[in-house]
Design a protein around this nucleic acid. Structure first.
Length: 633
DNA sequence: GTTCCTATGC
């Protein structure tokens, strides 16, 4: 690749702060000039500057200026500052309240929004359509159905029931709270039941995981526009229905509805999950053909797609060429590099971010610590962890989780356990599961048992954790204890998430489960599997059956289970359906097992192919008998 | 009315 060779360049395009070159003229600026300047205030530093000018010119109580100032604070999510300004207003009006409530909603604080609304009513200000729409957003955000109904009553009294904006927000508030009957009642009373209202209804069903009902609403839409198609694709992606999302995208094109950048971001997201590199590349060229200049969202989606589809070079390339970079752009790049085990570059990107003047957030540190964990960089991990406070970020359970994972992985589970006990947050199942599995890996069964006892008491165990516990006991030959967990899963109707691998061939995704025989080419696939098995054995391979932890009868059956692991089926299909020596890209939903890892290394040697595997946690680039993870994963 | 990044185990 050009531009970005092995490491990211230190010099990058300066990060534009979204400001125009507009400056305040010297001397007393006019009211118009201040209003225009306020429109360009996207960050708090610039807002402070504007505020100082306003005060100096004695315009603090100017209604329009105060409103624009509050709007700027809201957009920049600086609600503390906004609240200070608001409290100095002698007679705030309904617009000022609306700006404040919107800001609270944007910052995720629904209670503050609702509280302000009542404060407004308390000062005898009559609500209008805008402010009721805002407070309804707060009700939806806070899932506050009781409050939503209260506001609904006031809307009727105020005669705002037929206001379209109010209606949309009322439907949305009910929908977000899951009160679909109430939502439909409002829907039916609206003068026009158009595509917008139906899109709102559909999205609410998706938010609640009610995919069938959402799709039914979609089918009821007469004239389907770009936004409703996009909302459909987004909803499917959000509910893990990636293939259906791509199918919907194809239907949209057949329907001759043009995608916009929102649509393409959703499609890229689906590609990322599926590892659909070819389609992802198609979207990228579509963007170029239609000269859609990548904004932060599109850029981030592309970086993520290339990284998650295994092409980290192209991912870096997009990152380097992007003109607008925000905190998410950087987070995406850092997590992508971590995913590929490029810990050093992840750290370098973090340095670049600071140089660029972008404030890291909590997710930045999750990605960074994750990079350290995958690279086995304990000391650096601690350094970064303890530096978080310098950025005003208090470690959350995820950050502690990374540290415990990091210590566990490098074979220091006892230290991880001590660290866990010293935290000021409650350990969660993810953290306990990670440490438990690392205890198992490093042979500390005493600690594993302690952790298992903690986990057993948790009521909300998911299938992965239960399988982990079952396997812990199975590995000790304690079949009765193992069976207990399998029974517990069965009783609660929890099904084990089956191992599943996929491969993209000619733009189509082919999925394989353990021992899958559904593929039309199954005969040739299994023939290849047998052929490969013999070849590998002649190369000195013998299966490591220790990793098969089901209580199967006899070694032969254990061996057979290994050979039909889904990733091997996907690889065999790739071998028979693509050009010799062309690289194969596999996506697996679970972590790759030790034996498959060994086998794939050998396969790359005997077939002279590169094989890229994305497992649950990271990428493995196999080539000529070795793997990029250095057998540490 | 629609968009990118979030630790783990099977």
């Amino acid at each position: 690749m050009s531009g970005c060779s092995s490491l990211l360049p230190v010099t990058v395009a300066p990060y534009p702060h979204g400001n125009s070159d507009r400056k305040l003229a010297k001397g007393a600026p006019s009211r118009i000039e201040i209003l225009a300047f306020l429109k360009t205030c996207k960050d708090i530093t610039r807002i402070h500057l504007a505020h100082a000018k306003i005060v100096r010119n004695g315009l603090q109580q100017d209604k329009f200026i105060a409103f624009e100032l509050l709007r700027a604070c809201s957009t920049a999510k600086s609600m503390e500052y906004a609240t200070k300004i608001f409290s100095t207003l002698e007679a705030p009006n309904v617009f000022h309240y609306t700006a404040m409530i919107d800001g609270h909603v944007l910052s995720g604080s629904s209670e503050d929004g609702i509280r302000l609304y009542y404060q407004m009513i308390g000062s005898s200000i009559i609500p209008d359509g805008y402010v009721t729409a805002s407070v309804l957003k707060a009700c939806g955000l806070g899932l506050d159905l009781r409050e939503g109904k209260e506001v609904h009553g006031q809307i009727m009294k105020l005669g705002l029931g037929c206001n379209r904006i109010v209606g949309i927000n009322l439907i949305e508030a009910y929908g977000k709270c899951g009160a679909f009957q109430d939502a439909w009642k409002v829907f039916e009373k609206m003068p026009e039941q158009d595509v917008v209202l139906r899109t709102v209804m559909m999205s609410c069903y998706f938010d609640h995981g009610r995919v069938e009902e959402a799709c039914a609403v979609f089918r009821g839409i007469g004239e389907k526009d770009t936004i409703c198609w996009t909302a459909l694709i987004d909803g499917l992606v959000g509910n893990g229905e990636m293939s259906k999302a791509l199918q919907a995208f194809r239907e949209m094109q057949r329907d001759n509805v043009n995608p916009n950048e929102f649509t393409l971001v959703c499609v890229l997201s689906a590609c990322s999950h599926l590892g659909a590199l070819e389609l992802g590349r198609w979207v990228h060229s579509y963007l170029r053909n239609f000269k859609i200049d990548p904004n932060c969202f599109v850029g981030g989606a592309l970086i993520n797609m290339y990284a998650r589809c295994g092409d980290i070079d192209e991912s870096k390339q997009v990152f380097c060429q992007l003109r607008d970079r925000d905190v998410t752009t950087y987070n995406t790049m850092i997590s992508g590099l971590a995913l590929h085990g490029n810990s050093a570059e992840a750290i370098k990107t973090f340095q670049l971010m600071k140089k660029d003047g972008i404030q890291p957030n909590d997710l930045t540190f999750v990605s960074l610590l994750n990079a350290c964990s995958h690279g086995g960089l304990a000391e650096l991990g601690f350094e970064i962890f303890y530096s978080m406070k310098d950025y005003g970020i208090r470690p959350q359970v995820e950050h502690y989780g990374c540290m415990i994972d990091l210590l566990g992985r490098i074979g220091r589970p006892r230290e991880a356990y001590d660290f866990m006990k010293s935290m000021n947050v409650h350990p969660d199942n993810i953290m306990l599961g990670s440490l438990l599995s690392n205890c198992k890996l490093h042979g500390d069964f005493e600690l594993a048992e302690i952790l298992a006892k903690i986990l057993i008491d948790q009521s909300d165990l998911d299938s992965g954790t239960l399988v982990l516990l079952a396997n812990l006991y199975a590995s000790q030959g304690r079949w009765d204890d193992a069976a207990l967990f399998r029974a517990r899963m069965k009783n609660r109707g929890i099904r084990k998430e089956p191992g599943c691998s996929s491969i993209e061939v000619d733009g189509n995704i082919h999925e394989f489960l353990l021992g899958d025989i559904r593929h039309p080419e199954r005969d040739r696939i299994y023939l290849k599997l047998g052929e490969l098995d013999e070849l590998l054995r002649s190369e000195g391979y013998s299966p490591v059956i220790k990793v098969v932890l089901h209580d199967l009868e006899g070694d032969e059956e254990k061996e057979r289970t290994l050979t039909i692991h889904s990733e091997r089926l996907a690889i065999c299909y790739g071998l028979i359906s693509t050009e010799p020596k062309s690289p194969l890209r596999i996506v697996k939903n679970l972590r790759i097992c030790y034996d498959c890892h060994q086998v794939i290394k050998l396969i790359t040697r005997v077939t002279e192919r590169k094989i890229v595997v994305r497992d649950r946690n990271r990428f493995h680039h196999f080539e000529n008998g070795t793997c990029s993870c250095g057998d540490y994963w």
